[in-house]
């Protein structure tokens, strides 16, 4: 398997219960996984654990044959080769779009870096925006720059934390389609967390449902959520909370 997670555990020092309780599952190369759960279910914490931004209290995690975390190993986030798109995008405000993308590129000539930035900007359809600053972009454009920045170093895995939560509904539908196209075109393995079942349905190859820090179910979108909600006439966008009746 390309990615293996075994008995992953984590709890915050100020909490008695486990935020991530015994997560185990595996992912194939190029697969897009959605972590679906209500607010506070532990899905964002799981993402931070995989990224290396938090240290698990137990378990192990292997990516492409390399141990990222186990009893005696902890690889720091900058050494993992994992990309991440943050919920608020975290674009560096003092850098242009091009410099934001170049920042994450490994050692290569400036010319090559600019070329690579151009390629990923073309992928996210933002050619011509190189010299703009984050505050000069719309929410949707910022989201695509954040994605381009994460993809540019060709990470072995890309993590997306609630990638649509800052966008208005119309834009969400459009970007959702774009995102799947970009991820598949870049052949990137991806895990994204969301509380919106429509996002999960539209984007994921498989869904991991999380409830109270535990994995509830794992399966294909059509098996877990039935037909695509958007295919039902008159169906409106509903969240996971609404789906499970909270």
């Amino acid at each position: 398997m390309y990615m293996e997670i075994n008995n992953l555990m984590f709890s915050y020092s100020n909490s008695s219960s486990k935020t991530v309780d015994n997560f185990s599952f595996s992912v194939e190369k190029g697969e897009v996984i959605s972590m679906l759960g209500r607010s506070g279910s532990g899905k964002s914490t799981f993402l931070r654990l995989i990224a290396g931004l938090e240290m698990p209290s137990g378990g192990s995690f292997t990516l492409n044959g390399k141990k990222m975390f186990c009893e005696d190993t902890f690889i720091h986030p900058e050494k993992r080769g994992i990309g991440m798109v943050f919920q608020d995008y975290a674009l560096f405000p003092h850098m242009s779009v091009e410099d934001n993308i170049i920042f994450g590129l490994p050692k290569m000539s400036r010319k090559e870096k600019i070329k690579r930035a151009g390629e990923v900007l073309e992928l996210v359809e933002l050619t011509g925006f190189e010299k703009r600053y984050p505050h000069q972009l719309s929410g949707g454009q910022q989201q695509r720059v954040a994605l381009a920045r994460a993809i540019a170093p060709e990470p072995e895995l890309i993590l997306l934390d609630e990638p649509f939560s800052n966008l208005d509904t119309d834009l969400q539908v459009k970007i959702r389609g774009d995102l799947r196209r970009i991820l598949k075109k870049a052949k990137t393995t991806a895990i994204f967390v969301t509380h919106n079942q429509n996002d999960a349905h539209a984007l994921a190859d498989r869904i991991v449902k999380i409830k109270d820090g535990k994995i509830d179910k794992i399966g294909r979108p059509c098996d877990l959520l039935g037909v695509s909600p958007t295919e039902i006439p008159g169906m409106i966008e509903i969240t996971y909370e609404e789906l499970i009746g909270v």
Binding site: E78, G81, M84, F92, F103, A150
Partner: peptide, 21 residues
């Protein structure tokens, strides 16, 4: 800490993150 996390996810170590971000 988000910008710092983003920088580290892009491969920058603590020192580079500190000076560049």
């Amino acid at each position: 800490t988000n910008f710092r996390d983003a920088s580290r996810m892009l491969g920058a170590n603590s020192l580079r993150t500190f000076f560049k971000i």
